[in-house]
Simulated assay, not measured.
Amino acid sequence: MTLDSKKYIKYGLVLLLSIGLILFTQELKLLKNPKSTPITVETFYGLASLWVFSMIGIFVSDLFKKVKVKAIRDFPILGWVSITSLVFCLLSDFFVNVIQAVDFLAITTPILTFAGISVANRLTDLRKTSWKVAIVAVFVFSGTYIGSALLAQLGLLVTGR
């Protein structure tokens, strides 16, 4: 087994864990709110499609690492996965329909967890940055929170609730 195949197996297993967490989260949401997105055969097809799109995006990213154009070589994996998903969804409505069977909030929970873990792994890099970044972060987080709260309040006022 080569180093590349081990890397792809590792990525595939991490993505499979993600798919399992998405399914688990959707089931918990369904138990909490029976009117939410039900788990059907299409849900499994949608999760399989997301897994395949992710793996294709990883392969494409590795293929383009050998290109001499820096912008293409440094393009992030997430971008290649997004482009792959977009192309397949434009080619066939099947993919759009089966991905719609996967609850959006069930997808975001594991993704945000993995994002948090990846940021936590880079805390040593964060320590090397200036303390001024912390001040900027506080203002950005506060502004985002206040802006979201104001928009939500406006939405409630417009709908009369």
Rank of each mutant, 00 (worst) to 15 (best):
D4L: 14
D4N: 08
S5A: 06
S5D: 12
K7C: 00
Y8H: 10
Y8C: 03
Y11V: 01
Y11I: 01
G12Y: 10
G12D: 05
G12K: 05
L15M: 09
L15Q: 06
L15R: 07
S18H: 12
I19T: 09
G20E: 07
L21P: 15
I22R: 10
L23R: 09
F24D: 00
Q26I: 00
Q26M: 02
L28D: 04
K29F: 14
L30G: 08
L31E: 01
N33I: 12
N33G: 00
P34L: 04
P34V: 00
T37G: 00
P38Y: 02
V41N: 04
V41Y: 11
E42K: 15
F44N: 04
F44I: 12
Y45F: 15
A48E: 08
A48C: 04
S49H: 02
S49P: 15
L50S: 09
W51D: 00
V52T: 06
F53Q: 05
F53M: 05
M55A: 00
I56W: 12
I58N: 04
V60K: 07
S61G: 12
S61M: 06
D62V: 04
F64S: 06
F64I: 14
F64R: 03
K65E: 11
K66V: 03
K66G: 01
K66S: 02
V67L: 10
V69H: 11
A71W: 15
A71N: 12
A71I: 15
D74G: 03
F75A: 06
F75L: 11
F75E: 03
F75Y: 14
I77Y: 04
I77F: 07
G79H: 12
G79S: 14
W80Y: 13
V81D: 02
V81F: 08
V81S: 07
I83S: 01
I83F: 10
I83T: 09
L86C: 14
V87G: 03
F88T: 01
F88C: 03
C89A: 13
C89E: 14
C89G: 01
L90S: 11
L91Y: 09
F94H: 12
F95Y: 15
V96C: 01
V98A: 01
Q100M: 08
A101H: 06
A101N: 03
V102R: 10
V102D: 12
D103C: 07
D103M: 09
L105P: 01
I107Q: 05
I107V: 14
I107F: 10
T108C: 09
T108H: 04
T109K: 11
T109M: 15
T109N: 03
P110R: 05
L112D: 02
L112Y: 15
T113Q: 06
A115I: 15
A115H: 05
A115R: 13
G116A: 04
G116L: 03
S118K: 09
V119T: 12
V119P: 15
V119C: 13
A120H: 12
N121G: 13
R122L: 11
R122D: 05
L123T: 09
T124V: 13
T124H: 13
T124W: 11
D125H: 15
L126P: 10
L126S: 02
L126K: 02
K128D: 03
T129Y: 15
T129N: 14
T129A: 01
S130C: 14
W131L: 08
K132L: 06
K132C: 00
V133M: 10
V133I: 14
V136E: 02
V138Y: 07
F139M: 12
F139E: 03
F141K: 10
F141A: 06
G143I: 02
G143K: 06
Y145L: 13
I146E: 01
I146N: 00
